[in-house]
Amino acid sequence: MGSLFAESRCRIYSILQKNRLGYACRNVGKLRFPVNISSQRHNTNTSTANEEEIKQFSDIASKWWQWNNKNMPLHALNMVRVPLIRDALLGDEKSHKIDQPRPLSGYKILDVGCGGGILCEPLARLGAQVTGIDASSEIINVAKAHASKCDRVAANVSYQCTTIEQLTTTENAQSFDAVIASEVIEHVDNVDLFVSSCCQLIKPGGKHIVTTINRTPLSYAVMIIGGEYISRIIPAGSHDWKKFITPKELTKKLEEGGLNVDFIGGIFYNPLTNNAGWLDNTKVNYAIVAHKPSENYEKSNA
């Protein structure tokens, strides 16, 4: 009797699943505004990589480079983050380097949680030596395969399947002109370890660029209810609101890692026009640019 019930329930679920509206309802039913976040914030995992998250992204690995699928927001975000990284690195040199074919040549960049390489490839085209790391081997394979198709990219980019804390043991400390953590910090376990590992790999005078999502009621409404359940631009379950981090918290962590924050700016994404741009409001998406002071390096050496 019990098994029969289970079977019929399964059937109802499968019918519901086929029905788009039913699917949405089922998921919306799970939505609950998370009030208690303490358990997540004090994560003491020794690894930053979250198995569930890795699996979630590996499942969509093959779709990473389709311009017509759900990665459109990530492609659009390049409109904001590529110029941000380029200008942060070039600084005063921007005016005379911007019109050159490879303004970023000579810069070594680390992209943490690079995914399929949506951000690595434009930076490589601008001439930077880019290292992309991701905890999912499937995604790294997608990234490698895609990079090999464009000579200009292939020459400047290398991918490794690893985590940031593992990289600190193999890579020389303070070896990158810029470490980028774009849309990744909200997916990792042990944010403290993640941030300190990132800080460790930045050269004195180097930059740290982070883009992520703020933890506000508005970001819950926009990213999770709006993005994942209503418009379904983002695959459902991509984000865990409790893992989002506020600019204040992130600033504190970066400062603990020995960085000075230079800039905090809000980012908007318009799914209808597929446009992204800057915003005064940092309540949903935002970017932080920080730098490692040069004298800090001398002090620690002395």
Binding site: W67, N68, M72, H75, A76, N78, M79, V82, P83, R86, I98, P101, P103, E121, P122, L123, A124, R125, L126, C150, N274
Partner: peptide, 12 residues
């Protein structure tokens, strides 16, 4: 598109 490092033939 080039100053943003984009793939020159990308649809967006």
């Amino acid at each position: 598109a080039v100053t943003e490092g984009n793939d020159i033939g990308a649809l967006p």
